[in-house]
Design a binder for these strands. Structure first.
Length: 268
DNA sequence: GAATGTTTACAGCGGG
DNA sequence: CCCGCTGTAAACATTC
């Protein structure tokens, strides 16, 4: 029986791990994307315990950001100077916590190395098409050099959170034009004819995911913190962007707004 | 120099 | 007892 959580902790240490605290901060930011300093600030504002001994716990927190695959470093826009990167949550990291509780993770979230590489490359490439094409070339060369190294690492289609097609994407090692498909997320529904043909619930059918100016507001911050609830919302805010590469559909672990559209690149 | 990020090491704890 | 998760410390590199 889990210990009931209080709504405030005063100067007492809250029962959340650094991973949980960081996840809270990120999810409660309007863009689900925060620089390190803002993560610190959120934690200090919400939990007075962390207003002291800042050197110690901030070192631990940085260690967690680097060490855990569930956090993704997003490079700053190259045209926007500033120190440090932005951090976000890996979209597939949401089932880490038991019953939505942030007290202790069920299982550490890990990403296979090559998948991590692809993800990081895409993020690193987000700011310039030129870099993006360069990295595609690198992947192509890698695949030609040693296809077996790629094959076992291609994410299955269930990484596409909004797509109902089931066929896993098989890498073909054939150069194809690079395009990006943005798929709006449709909420899961019962597998019945009536349910499947019914229109999306009001407010979801016409949701615009793509406009930078319409960054969705974060949900209000309340304790105890229900991770599952917010995770569900997170996927509404961040539909999966499938990157149609020569290896099949690779998810782009990117935040809204979509970074590979034709308009001006967003400035973080 | 300070902030940020990476890595290694180790200890405590709980579960299997 | 082993293993995995977490917290802590520390060294070091990078960037502004």
């Amino acid at each position: 029986m889990p210990r009931p959580l209080k709504m405030t902790y005063g100067d007492q240490k809250p029962p959340y791990s650094y991973i949980s605290l960081t996840a809270m901060a990120i999810i409660h930011s309007p863009q689900r994307l925060l620089p390190l300093s803002e993560i610190y600030r959120f934690i200090m504002e919400q939990f007075p315990y962390y207003r002291k001994n800042t050197q110690k716990w901030q070192n631990s927190l940085r260690h967690n950001l680097s060490f855990n695959d569930c956090f993704i470093k997003v490079p700053r826009n190259v045209t926007k100077a500033g120190k440090g990167s932005y951090w976000t949550l890996h979209p597939m990291a949401f089932d880490m916590f038991e019953n939505g509780s942030l007290l202790r993770r069920r299982k550490r979230f890990r990403v296979k190395q090559l998948e991590k590489d692809i993800s990081n490359w895409k993020l690193a490439a987000a700011n310039t098409e030129m870099v993006n094409h360069y990295l595609d070339d690198q992947l192509t060369q890698m695949a030609f050099a040693d296809p077996s190294r790629i094959a076992g690492h291609i994410p299955p289609s269930n990484y596409d959170l909004g797509n109902t097609s089931s066929a896993a994407q098989i890498p073909t090692y054939k150069a194809v034009p690079t395009t990006v498909t943005q798929l709006p997320v449709r909420p899961k529904r019962a597998f019945t004819i009536e349910s499947l043909i019914a229109p999306d619930p009001e407010g979801l059918a016409h949701m615009d995911y793509g406009s930078p100016s319409e960054a969705k507001k974060p949900p209000p911050f309340n304790l105890p913190f229900n991770f599952n609830e917010l995770a569900a919302q997170y996927h509404l805010y961040f539909p999966s962007f499938l990157y149609n590469s020569q290896y099949g559909n690779i998810p782009c672990y990117q935040k809204t707004p979509p970074l590979f559209h034709n308009g001006p690149l967003p400035v973080f």
